[in-house]
Computed example of a mutant assay.
Amino acid sequence: MPEPVFNPARHRLEHDLSSAEFESGVEAGLWRLVSLDWPHLIAAVTAGDGQELGMRFDVENYPGTAPAGQPWDLENAEPLQISRWPTGGSSAQIFRPDWSPSNGNAPYLACDRIGLATHPNWANDNANRAWNSGRTIVFYLRQLHHELRAAHLTQQEPA
């Protein structure tokens, strides 16, 4: 059986997921790791109402390339229906039904790969919130959690 090929992006992400910084967010109840099936990371971020928003990230070429996130249905392992996206607070500016669906359901954030690709000026205009190769997944999760502080999530109707 051939030796597995070393993947520096995966190695770096696994390092960041085991960092004290990531674990402190887990212990504080801000987020949690759901799974890592390279190159997809699934995490749950706590919203203001205490419910969790699932997020699926494409982390290919991490950290040189920003993660590409999308709201994720943790129960059904599929993109979260728009009707269940976060509402309240600033979440409507981040999870935008007028922009996100045509952009892979990406959050409208300067730390997201799709946001940066569609708004090349963001890296300079929003440097304090924009992704760069010195950032970690914790930076992205903090940005999401910050925007979800006053948000609430719509629960799926029972079948």
Score class of each variant (00 low, 15 high):
86 P>F: 03
86 P>R: 13
86 P>L: 03
87 T>Q: 14
87 T>G: 04
88 G>W: 10
89 G>T: 08
90 S>I: 10
90 S>V: 12
90 S>E: 15
92 A>V: 02
92 A>L: 01
93 Q>P: 00
94 I>H: 00
94 I>K: 05
94 I>W: 02
94 I>F: 00
95 F>S: 00
95 F>H: 01
96 R>K: 14
96 R>G: 02
97 P>G: 09
97 P>Q: 13
97 P>M: 12
97 P>H: 13
97 P>F: 11
97 P>C: 06
98 D>M: 10
99 W>P: 06
99 W>S: 07
100 S>N: 07
101 P>A: 11
101 P>K: 11
101 P>C: 09
103 N>F: 13
103 N>V: 07
103 N>Y: 12
104 G>H: 05
104 G>F: 09
104 G>V: 11
104 G>Q: 06
104 G>R: 01
106 A>N: 01
106 A>P: 00
107 P>T: 06
108 Y>A: 15
108 Y>D: 10
109 L>S: 09
109 L>F: 08
109 L>N: 03
109 L>I: 13
110 A>P: 14
110 A>D: 11
111 C>P: 01
111 C>H: 02
112 D>N: 06
112 D>S: 07
112 D>G: 08
112 D>W: 04
112 D>A: 10
112 D>E: 04
112 D>R: 08
113 R>H: 12
113 R>V: 09
114 I>Y: 00
114 I>P: 00
114 I>T: 11
115 G>D: 02
117 A>I: 07
117 A>D: 13
118 T>N: 14
119 H>R: 10
119 H>C: 02
119 H>L: 06
119 H>I: 05
119 H>N: 15
119 H>K: 05
120 P>T: 03
120 P>D: 08
120 P>Y: 08
121 N>D: 15
122 W>S: 05
122 W>A: 06
123 A>R: 15
123 A>T: 15
123 A>V: 15
124 N>A: 15
124 N>E: 14
125 D>F: 05
125 D>E: 10
125 D>H: 07
126 N>E: 10
127 A>D: 12
128 N>L: 03
128 N>A: 13
128 N>W: 09
129 R>Q: 13
129 R>G: 03
129 R>A: 11
131 W>H: 05
132 N>E: 09
134 G>P: 06
135 R>N: 11
135 R>C: 15
135 R>A: 10
136 T>V: 05
137 I>C: 00
137 I>L: 01
138 V>D: 02
138 V>Q: 07
138 V>F: 10
138 V>E: 08
139 F>E: 02
139 F>Y: 03
139 F>W: 04
140 Y>P: 02
141 L>V: 07
141 L>R: 03
141 L>N: 02
142 R>D: 05
142 R>E: 08
143 Q>E: 10
